[in-house]
């Protein structure tokens, strides 16, 4: 049986439709990602899964338990890390961890194995107040607290938002290790590059699921021929490319522009001529392989 089953969930806030007919399931031991911009409905969905909100329509099961009826049992089973840092800033690292362990009726010693890899990195600061930790360390502490009662399902709402690139990578490595110990992990992120690290990803936008599949399948479905174009002046390059007739998409991608043309309308030669005519220098045009971000951008327009 899947760890999470969601069927036709909908949720309104006043006149805003936060979630609209959402259905999916997450297998046991899977690392499942939700990608979507701010306000897409990720947090609302996660709050329904963590029994904090009741859906208007549809039903959701976590470990076979209904999120509305069996909320008490679910609360014992899941680990939740809210999008906002929600630990006690006036308690030390150690005290926070002990508190959550006690509240879930366990001790730090009992489940230390599970959090050791993560906690060991912040242990040197265990006497420090949680409010005085750096962003990356806060995330590690919050993850430790969410794991301390050995949950079978871990729900993480944008755990890497506001964390530097190195800490983000580290964090995902930790998630991979946790997954190996058999924990089902559901994670939301606004960063598309993190999608390729999940087993499966769901793209969510304006309360609707756009697609659910593995990262490699998502890439395979990209329909256009893609070029990577560079010049010495990236800013006017983007503007000129957007003005080019027959252009489908233009996205800045690092120091290059990722460009796709409408059916049969663009080729390298005429493009180069057009850009030279606009006074660009140092032009390089090369075919590119679509990555997961290109695919999502394509799905979202």
């Amino acid at each position: 049986m899947p760890a999470i089953i969601v069927e036709h969930i909908a949720k309104h806030f006043a006149r805003v439709k936060a979630l609209n007919d959402i259905s999916f399931s997450v297998e046991k031991g899977e690392l499942f990602g939700f990608i979507g911009p701010d306000g897409a409905g990720k947090t609302t969905l996660f709050r329904i899964l963590t029994t904090l909100l009741i859906p208007d329509e549809g039903k959701a099961l976590v470990n076979g338990l209904d999120v509305v009826k069996d909320f008490r049992k679910i609360r014992q089973d899941i680990g939740y890390m809210p999008g906002r840092f929600s630990l006690y800033t006036d308690l030390s690292v150690e005290e926070n961890l002990n508190f959550y362990a006690t509240v879930f009726g366990t001790t730090v010693a009992e489940n230390y194995e599970l959090i050791r890899d993560i906690y060991i990195q912040i242990e040197p600061f265990k006497k420090r107040k949680a409010g005085k930790l750096s962003g990356g360390m806060k995330q590690k502490l919050a993850l430790s607290c969410a794991l301390i009662h050995k949950p079978s399902v871990l729900i993480l709402d944008e755990p890497t938002t506001g964390v530097d690139a190195v800490s983000r990578l580290e964090f995902w490595e930790m998630l991979k290790r946790l997954q190996k110990s058999g924990i089902t992990i559901v994670v939301a992120t606004p960063y598309m590059d993190e999608a390729s690290l999940c087993d499966r990803v769901a793209l969510i936008q304006a309360g609707k699921l756009m697609t659910i599949s593995t990262p490699s399948e998502v890439i395979k479905t990209y329909p256009w021929k893609l070029f990577s174009i560079k010049s010495d002046d990236i800013f006017s390059l983007l503007n000129d490319l957007r003005a080019y007739p027959g252009m489908h998409t233009v996205f800045a991608f690092g120091q290059a522009a990722h460009v796709s043309f409408k059916e049969g309308l663009g080729d390298e030669e005429s493009m180069k001529k057009y850009l030279q005519g606009k006074g660009h220098s140092g032009i390089t045009i090369s075919p590119a392989v679509a990555n997961i971000e290109d695919c999502f951008m394509e799905l979202m327009i």
Binding site: Y80, P82, V103
Partner: peptide, 12 residues
Amino acid sequence: LGTMELLLVSPL
């Protein structure tokens, strides 16, 4: 502070 969210998710 949002800590109530975590208290609610706990079995307390």
